[in-house]
Design a protein around this nucleic acid. Sequence first.
DNA 1: GCGCGAGCATGACAAATGTCAGGGCCACCG
DNA 2: CGGTGGCCCTGACATTTGTCATGCTCGCGC
Lengths: 202, 202
Amino acid sequence: MSVRVLLADDEHLIRGALAALLSLEDDLLVVAEAASGPEALAMARAHAPDVAVLDLQMPGADGVKVATSLRTELPGCRVLIVTSHGRPGHLKRALAAGVRGFVPKTVSAQRLAEIIRTVHAGNRYVDPELAADAISAGDSPLTAREAEVLELAADGAPVAEIAERAALSQGTVRNYLSSAVSKLGVENRHAAVRLARERGWV
Amino acid sequence: MSVRVLLADDEHLIRGALAALLSLEDDLLVVAEAASGPEALAMARAHAPDVAVLDLQMPGADGVKVATSLRTELPGCRVLIVTSHGRPGHLKRALAAGVRGFVPKTVSAQRLAEIIRTVHAGNRYVDPELAADAISAGDSPLTAREAEVLELAADGAPVAEIAERAALSQGTVRNYLSSAVSKLGVENRHAAVRLARERGWV
DNA sequence: GCGCGAGCATGACAAATGTCAGGGCCACCG
DNA sequence: CGGTGGCCCTGACATTTGTCATGCTCGCGC
């Protein structure tokens, strides 16, 4: 009785190669492939796989969004996320979405096959290094409003625009920005945005 | 007589899978693998491959840097760059470094094998879509100083620091920044930095 | 009820940033 | 030679952003 796997990654090169390698394992069966978030969802609905291996970054909807949808639509389907750039915040978001495994693309195919089995058996697996990063990043020191304002400031918008979109006075917006900057111990709001992004706090 | 290939990519998953798939081709022989820029160089020196397939983003030194070194050290070795995120500037830099091929990871392994043969035969191959992007991005409208100042501004440094590092008055720095912003048709310097980065102008 | 601390909000002031008009230099063209 | 235009550079001025002191509200412990 083999494990039915769905593979989703926008990079054809990787997806194809991965499918080939996983097929070498006797107990794994790649039943569907997808190149985008929406496509992954459609494929999952059609084939009801045991395990969905999702790339974190895909056009349309990222791995975590797909995982969230799958959680309600196919509760029996375990989700395993693979990613190139492991930012702490992603891991946190992923676990919150009910993802069962989270691994970087630096693992070997052999190892990935083992992890697929682990996840299929109902266990969780998180790459130790990524976990350590997430723990050292800690929880966000930002308050709700600070995070909100920082997010609106993310694309370099002027304070006036942020104030309007958040229905706040400009002074208040500056205040939150300033507070976020000092909490994060950085030089200016742009560095704050970058850091918060990196840590997954926005 | 098969083509001797060096494979360099920091993602073990992809590198391994790729090696396996390329090995299925009778006329391709993967003689070495590397997970970082420096390692790729060392492997190239040791094995003198016919074609080096390099990931654009690797720890240590990126694909283009490696290509530059290879150009002088192993002039007979053709370089083919593969990349996930195809930014126009990268392509330009790569071609300037004497790279013979440039493809996104969205191609299939089959296609990649063909391209390796193409490059080995002495021809060039550039992904049509990436080429179109690069052409539509066009040449940088920025003058030398504008680009220099923009680069120094890239990490959110204050004007005073940029002025000092560029040995200019603060007024002048502001002026260049302003000029760059208006040339790029964006709202502020941060957006300008992002856009210039994206287009490969800095 | 009362004091206390945390988060939310504001405006005044100071500092940094963006904009403008203009001057010097050099290469190019008539 | 005498424009003409592009690039480099500057300081003065207007606008935007960052900092600070302050007030409000709400939940909590006493």
